[in-house]
Design a protein around this nucleic acid. Sequence first.
DNA 1: GGCCTGCGCGCG
DNA 2: AAAGCGCGCGCAGGCC
Length: 827
Amino acid sequence: MKTIRFSSKPDCTACKLHRGAEVVGEMGVGAVGNIMVVGRMPEIHGNDSLFKDLETVGIETEECYFTSALKCQNYEANIGKTDIKMCRGYLEAEIRKVKPTWILALGNEALGALTSHSGIMKYRGRVIEHHSGAKIFPTISPNAVLRNPGQRPSYMADLKLFVAEILGKDAAIPYPKIKKVATQRGLQWLVQQLDRAELLSYDVETYSTPAGNEWSPNARIISLSGTMLVDGKLVVWALPLSHPQSPFRKSWRRVLRFLAPHLSGVPKQVAQNGKYDCKWLRHFGVPMRVTFDTMLAVHLLDENLPKSLKTQALMRLGVKPWAISTKDLRSTELNDVLIYNALDTYYTYFVYLDAKKELKEHPRLARLLAFLMMPANEILIDVERRGVWQDREKLQTNSKIALDMRAEIDQKLMDWVPDPSEWPDHIPTKRGRGVNFNPSNFLRWWLFEHLEFPVIRRGKEKDDGSPGWPSVAEDVMLELRMNHPHPVVDLLLERSKWQKYCSAFLSSYEELLDENDRIHTTFKLYGTVTGRLSSGKNEADKITARAPIRGVNLQQVPRDPFVRGLFGAAPGFTFVEADFSQVELRVVAFISRDRTMRLLYETGQDIHAATASWVLGVPQSEVTKSDRKKAKAVNFGFVYGMYPRKFVYTAFTKYDVVFSLTEAEGIRAAFFEQFAGLLPWHNRQRRLVNEYRRVQSPLGRVRHLPDIDSQNRLIRMEAERQAINSPVQSMASDMTMLSMIEIHRKFEEMKIEGHFISTVHDSLLFEIKNEHVAKALPVIKDTMEHLPLKKKFGVEIDLPIVADLLVGKYWGEARELSGEEVYDYTP
DNA sequence: GGCCTGCGCGCG
DNA sequence: AAAGCGCGCGCAGGCC
């Protein structure tokens, strides 16, 4: 292999980078005609850890040419586009000489130098053609990975993908023979096969506007595919449905209904993110289930890894991504759609096998999948389909009120706005120079220059080193109200509330409320690193939706009854909210075994009130509701590793109470003296994460924390705090999930007419037929307070767990029940 | 006009 | 010197 070394240009002064540089004009070195690796600065030439990464995925470093986008080594300068441009000539000369077939671009600067594109996170992993004919493959820079090891898994996945692209062929798994089911005889064949199959991995291709919405009038299933295990043999098939070229384009609904019992009768049903496919298939009359979801399994095994089927197939099976070109499947060749659809199920099956094997080595994770994730998934399919009832009239009334309130405030604010002729030209707004009381450049100019309020705080420093925007956040306004009272400040504070209500909540509720006055969300069981659910629109909506879409976030509904009180129970039903009382702190007491905290809970005391009592120095009997709220800040903050400075800030912004730094230090010291078991617990978690680079919850949920290896001390400390918080948050949310599963089962067994309709981390929401409320309440409370944790996970939580029940017509306006009322309920 | 990011803020 | 955790979403600015 011929190698080449360009002579360096130590006297280059083309851009500013040569000034103060450690190395000037250093060119690349390495082999000709094969792979060119382009980093950011010349350090890349001898980067041992990069060499190791490349060797790991099977790239011979002796056969590569190493060079950089910038030829000067200068860590002080702020690198701009012009600097990269000036260096481009050198890089192009190297490319002409080296004639690489592949170029691996590491980081945004390399991407910019090679393609003029910017945004490495967007372009990573895609092949881009260079004008020389070479193929460019961008990914993130190895230095970014060193600074932030959490990026490592996806970085290595990219490198593996790069190798797969170079080799240009798939690895271990043979390409399947796909049976196209397009005739009556084909359907008969499919029925026979399905009836004998022990396992089916399935997937649907769908079309609707907005995307991903099975309720749309134009929603249709384009095709359905499967990979089956029949008598020990794999059978792969694809069924065209509503596609212009499909023989079943007119009868696809009937075809589905015909196949329904045979499809849903297969004992094992595997899918990737199958909740989506189930929602669609159930909507069109096929009662499919998911007995094993590859996405959920993969998420449990490593919550940090990319979970898409393509990535998993690549990482686990070495299969190169398969794809079809266009988004609108109706105008894609039917055969292409079918192949794509079938390959999805085929590779899902192999990912399933691989994930199952891995789960065998992690029995606690396997148990979480079987006892929590899959049952929860099954329940959530119907919960999402059912939706939550809203009072349509109330929504209309309140929407109008909110809009009017905002308009009224705007009008008052206008009194202080000067005539546009007095505005300076430099107000840089793209959308004209209109008045805008949202956080905008107009507002910043108006407040801080025209009205001459002092700048309290600035946002993040900009890339070129200039100071960030003056902040107009709520805490800034609160401080202005205190020290520089002015009607404008009060009005703006009031306005931001109504603005948020209008834009984020009421208007989207109005758009999304369905014809049965119900509003829908999509829950994700793989949306968080701790095991909590996340809630919102579905993925497809986020990408393509322009029109109204289904999917509000049910976990951030303002507690103000003005908004929360819109949600409720449909006529004839009662709304029931069941809250775990202080469940996270009880779990802290359980895990840390702190004696004081345990004693407080064992004797049925209120820990927030207790903390309020000694922080504020008042007897516990005189602790007010707002005192208790302040104490919450103390408890949560310090338990999870908050320090005095931040505590002062949070106490002020979130709880409206002013502490000095000295006071805060005193409170913190007293807190850890009071709960003497907490710091030793913190230290245990720190030791564990440093030793194993991960932590586990008592139920066995794993949080990987690769950032513990960061070279940056602040990032390491962040990982340590996450090691403290994660097991607690995980256990608390798993308790909520288990409650949901158990209560759902009991409702079915006891034939209680009522449904679980939503959850917000430590609370469960139900809609229960009026006549069945009395029967349901004790079931809910007993289940939550006595979860079968011992039976299912071998964990005995030796502390009282308490659930508070609230009953009413609307959420947020429901009445809290006493213990007796739960067991002897009269409406 | 599409797409991305930073910020601020809704919730637990 | 700086140091709660976990989310999703809307707006504005700015790039292409």
